[in-house]
Design a protein around this nucleic acid. Sequence first.
DNA 1: CTGTTAGCGCTTTCAT
DNA 2: ATGAAAGCGCTAACAG
Lengths: 353, 353
Amino acid sequence: MEHSSRGPVPHGHVTLVQVAQRAGVSAQSVSNALNNPDRVAPETRKRILAAVEELGYEPNLSARALRNRSSSLIAFKMRPARPDKASMLMDDFLYVLNASAVEAGYHLILCHAEGGQAGEIKAYRDLLKKTSIDAFILAETHRNDDRVAALRSWGVPFAAFGRSWDGDDEMAWVDVDGRAGTRAATAHVAAQGHTRIGHIGWPDDSELGQDRREGWLDACRARNLDTDLQAAVVDSLENGRQAAHHLLDAARPATALVCASDTLALGVMRALHERGLRPGVDVAITGYDDSPTAALVSPGLTTLRQPIDEVGRQLIQAVDNLMAGDPRPPHHVLLEPELIVRDSSLPGRRDTR
Amino acid sequence: MEHSSRGPVPHGHVTLVQVAQRAGVSAQSVSNALNNPDRVAPETRKRILAAVEELGYEPNLSARALRNRSSSLIAFKMRPARPDKASMLMDDFLYVLNASAVEAGYHLILCHAEGGQAGEIKAYRDLLKKTSIDAFILAETHRNDDRVAALRSWGVPFAAFGRSWDGDDEMAWVDVDGRAGTRAATAHVAAQGHTRIGHIGWPDDSELGQDRREGWLDACRARNLDTDLQAAVVDSLENGRQAAHHLLDAARPATALVCASDTLALGVMRALHERGLRPGVDVAITGYDDSPTAALVSPGLTTLRQPIDEVGRQLIQAVDNLMAGDPRPPHHVLLEPELIVRDSSLPGRRDTR
DNA sequence: CTGTTAGCGCTTTCAT
DNA sequence: ATGAAAGCGCTAACAG
């Protein structure tokens, strides 16, 4: 045909062979130049890369997947969003997770499952059979998580957002130190002079909830503060509201309430609204998650921000290591949340401008 | 080996050939039984399907993709979430989009792009070259959207969440009627007896903003109400706050403020907070999007909920039709948002229990 | 260091 | 109605 490349190549149709012809080498050498640079002479490699560039060649992932049994796809299962809850921006997490994945040469594929753990495991299995998913990212791990057992039995690399609560050292995980976070929040309100600091958290079947509660206990004990003001309720605005009313009705009522989630804290704010009390001024409130809502309510809600971009990066790196067959023990990363102080925990209402 | 299937098949390794052997037919017939049922004798087909079932066979998508140049993957680009904004739960949208995709036999793959429109288009192109993406879902269309032109020039099926503002009838889209929504919100506050109803919306370069503003104008004109109270600002809490102060400082101030977004409405709530005024009681407020925040602030924010699950379903159906080569003109679906009334627009503070 | 051979699992010809 | 052959684009394994 022609000797030099001219005009845009018809989309999606440049193959290895074409690059090889262009560079005057075999297909294999092109493959090597791309995947095993050291197996090819620097001079040849240069010529090949030039041809790749000129032709705008991109390897066909389907072919690669077929050949290598590896699709460069990482699967993540979304949970149905709960519109009534102020949770961490899953959006944001997905975005950074995907960004990290792409940067590392992968793509994120979404997995859909219904029917609890069993359904999720079945969905994983189906996905594995149909596509050669390279790895899975899990969120919200529990004690004795069946998904972990399943993935491990299949020998598929995976990493979890959420530590292995049963002390499973073989699992790669990234998590945020909820205990340290709640401790910081409690210390913060204590520093404002509060001595009757209550905690509204989750029932004991939640490892995450226990962890966060510990932080509150830590901080109270370190200051010899009472720890009688506490509630353990399922995460919802309504439950937070009721718990707040309860703790404010106590003989020696709470003057500060440290919550295990923004949702609960917003319930507290509603209770104060109902009582005609002012958040911050009359009762200090802190939440957890730095949900979008925290910044938007008035007054702003003091809360703990999870470093989700770092979580995303670390998760991808964890599975990347696993896939590379890195012999080192699996990634365990515990990150610190950041206390974001807003007016809900400050007595001096720093109003407006 | 053995005559009957026994125990779980080693994961991800049942091939067409194995099914064929099991059923005593050729690989080709199995393929036909699955993809072209009418080309195979009912009797044989039955035997084949039984074998498929027994072996737990799932076709390998990589092989199929390689052969058919079609991966059953639908791509969607996420935008980086803006933590300072109360937007529709993208989470939720992604979830239902994926659920619909899976139901229709596809999977959602996330696309990552930086660098605006150009970057996005480049990302699409790269993705197309590497994987054989079957279709794209676009969000947030503009006038003269370059992405539309690009995708069309490549002949790739796509559908957009957001109508074609330049009257491009060839594009498949699904959208929500912002004008009707704002009209309903305005009618609602008018029904509460308000006559000085202001609007806080977006600058005129936003088609979406214009559309929503029209609804307010519609409702005001239909009732002979003044339309002098309006602001057009970039979407942010701070801008909403300032605009509210401005409209409340007017000689004949607003008693109700209809906003183009929850973010703006929350800005209004902050302004009221600063002025010691009570949302609903002193000034009625409505937002738009039914962001999670709307349900969680106190008082709750009256707002418009987009039927995103229906949007998701329709989008998938749109691209599915396109891929099936449906000759009918492309999908155009305009859905109605639902007015969610909460206390921010009600004078009688329905407090508590 | 480079080229040749073979085959991943599937489906579109084309025979039978 | 069914089977055989060929090939999608790529790379591991083996020569040379």
